[in-house]
Amino acid sequence: MSAHPTQGSPLLDIRGLTVSYPTPQGPAQVVRGVDLAVAPGERVALVGESGSGKSVTARSVLRLDPDARTGGRILLEGEDVLEMTPREVRRVRGARAGLVFQDPLASLNPVKTVGWQITQPLRIRGVGRREARRRAVDLLGRLGVADPDRRFDDHPHQFSGGMRQRVVIAIAVIAEPRLLIADEPTTALDVRVQAQVLELMEDLARERGMAVLLITHDLGIVAGFARRVAVMRHGLIVEEADVDRLYASPSHPYTRSLLDAVPRIGDAPGRRLGAPVPATTEGEAL
């Protein structure tokens, strides 16, 4: 697979990443040597079906799974995340790389106000209460939450699914990371809201020069968002190409089968147009 030429040194540079989990039957190898680079400000999609190892790869960047046994290197701005002490990893999380989860119903703490949750990444880094609130309200407004100053003190259950995902995005980006990892950010949302959320993420990334690594099983939503696509299967990247070339002439049979699963009505490639065939159970709400 051709390493894609990117301008300057990459923001995120994953080299030969392996991840396995201990099981009673011995270690289960889930990621078997992944190479992937994301340049500053670039938007890359990592595509594959459930079980391909794409989410595990994404979470490894922030070392979020204590059970995982990892090998290889994950260079974030030149520093290897896998070599860091827990304290150093905590400084990376949220500030240099933010994460958006797939299920906005489950990923917000039900007993805390959304304002408290959005300001946490700032508060734990010593930003004052008032300043943190000002920036959170600004960001909520920017993300299209109506009357953000009042909604700041509301609890998650008072928000709709799409609005909750905006809150999750706000939590991920408030500390202004240079990389946003979005793990199936639209899977749990209905089709109309999916497009809005993607558009918001794209605009935000443009404004801030923030790179985005979009993890998804749905090639249908990738086209308008990312310039480059990596296709993952069984813990390996099987194809990596510019989005146009990939759509026009997929070289790997697996990529072709993924493309066949995308419904095309009228003017592709654009936002997703029809309901996807639910290929996984990942989006199941609680």
């Binding site: 979020l64 999380r93 500030a95 994460l99 990923s107 703490n109 939590i171 991920a172 500390a175």
Partner: peptide, 8 residues
């Protein structure tokens, strides 16, 4: 996990 991912 989300709380952890923000560096808490």
């Amino acid at each position: 996990t989300l709380a952890r991912s923000t560096g808490a």
